[in-house]
């Protein structure tokens, strides 16, 4: 039952944001197919440490697909080939014996490499700080049921809100565009009455920040949606465009 495979890893190693990176090849023997992908990397790192070499640096935390910390570009796909899966939910049974697996960091000007496979995604935080909120003060809220919200709107807002901020959208986009991320937040709040109040301001501020940070322009390829581990729809991008253009035309 506990099948094992042998694999070859081609892992991107890079000392720092300004230094030149390269691929390093590692062979791993007897990898249990029940392992998760990150546990396989743990195994690699244990072996490297045993040889007194520096382990491969990669981001990871919750390992249950929700924190958005893991960020590997595996064989040409962010979070690997499977749809609706984060890297930490990917298992080695999805790979064949003898397979070569290429692991790269997110490659986007907005996400500079910090070390090896770890990138700096603080740009997404900055976009959020530009307007991804409702300006309410704690203690000032009215009763939660004072504002009925149609279930379909609430459900659609929830689907947009399920974004985990991992950055796979910008990593998958051939234009390095962060539109899916931005649109998910703008959509969530635009769909709800409590977010409508500042909808115009929010759309303008978040798009301006996104542009300023050097993310690319959306050309509607849909790669972001296809690679999004939470399946956030590009219909949100249409809504962002609408909100933004409406806001700008009003000015």
């Amino acid at each position: 039952m506990d099948k094992t495979i042998n694999i070859t890893l081609k892992v991107w190693r890079q000392k720092g944001p300004k230094e030149k990176g390269h691929f390093e090849t590692y062979n791993l023997q007897n990898i249990s197919t029940n392992m998760s992908f990150l546990e396989m990397l743990d195994t690699l790192n244990e072996q490297l440490v045993a040889k007194h070499e520096e382990p491969v640096v990669f981001d990871h935390d919750c390992r249950e697909g929700i924190c958005g910390m893991c960020s590997l570009y595996i064989n040409g796909h962010p979070h690997g080939r499977d749809s609706h899966t984060t890297t930490c939910q990917l298992h080695m049974r999805r790979f064949k014996d003898g397979e070569t697996i290429t692991i790269e960091p997110w490659r986007s000007a907005g996400f500079p490499v910090v070390r090896d496979l770890m990138v700096d995604r603080s740009a997404y935080d900055k976009i959020m700080q530009a307007g991804g909120y409702t300006s309410i003060r704690c203690g000032a809220a009215q009763d939660a049921n004072a504002l009925p919200i149609p279930k379909p709107d609430a459900d659609e807002a929830m689907d947009a809100a399920s974004c985990i901020g991992c950055g796979a959208c910008a990593a998958a986009c051939k234009n390095g565009s962060a539109m899916l991320f931005v649109s998910a937040k703008v959509s969530q709040l635009a769909l709800l009455p409590q977010g409508r109040v500042e909808a115009a301001r929010r759309a303008k501020a978040m798009v301006a920040k996104m542009d300023e940070l050097g993310f690319g322009n959306c050309t509607n390829t849909g790669a972001c949606e296809a690679e999004c581990p939470k399946g956030v729809s590009i219909a949100n991008i249409a809504r962002l465009n609408r909100e933004y253009l409406k806001a700008k035309l009003k000015d």
Binding site: Y133, G139, A141, Q142, D143, A144, P150, A161, Q194
Partner: peptide, 13 residues
């Protein structure tokens, strides 16, 4: 609950 709804937390309805 009031605070979170005002923030735009999409609770089930």
């Amino acid at each position: 609950i009031d605070q979170c709804v005002a923030q735009g937390v999409p609770f089930a309805r």
